[in-house]
């Protein structure tokens, strides 16, 4: 399938999700269940995207595991996003020198 079509669908859906509520929404969602559900969605999405895909992200299980552990520890101590992200890559690279 043409990559242009994929990109058009991606861009169109993503834009409409942002634009429609921003341009036309005027009131507040009152259902506690719905609000709670929507609140949890981003955490659930990121978690499902990351596990187990992160272990395949470097093409080698051991380098990826080293990067994952590094990211886990550093993010537990609330280091900035960019520090965690680059340190994970650094750990994966260094581990790659030995496996």
């Amino acid at each position: 399938m043409s990559i242009v079509l994929y990109i058009a669908v991606m861009a169109g859906v993503t834009y409409l999700i942002r634009m429609l509520p921003f341009a036309f929404f005027r009131k507040k969602i009152s259902s506690v269940f719905l609000r709670s559900f929507l609140y949890y969605i981003p955490y659930a999405v990121l978690s499902a995207m990351t596990i187990p895909a992160i272990f395949y992200s470097t093409g080698n299980f051991y380098t990826a595991a080293a990067g994952t552990m590094t990211a886990l520890v550093l993010s537990y101590f609330r280091l900035p996003l960019i520090v965690v992200a680059l340190a994970a890559a650094g750990a994966a690279f260094l581990t790659g020198l030995f496996v």
Partner: peptide, 19 residues
């Protein structure tokens, strides 16, 4: 070796957001 290691960058950021 470098591009392979950088493949983890986005996932590392996701972890830093959710942990």
């Amino acid at each position: 070796s470098v591009t392979a290691a950088l493949g983890i960058v986005l996932y590392g950021m996701f972890m830093a957001i959710i942990i």
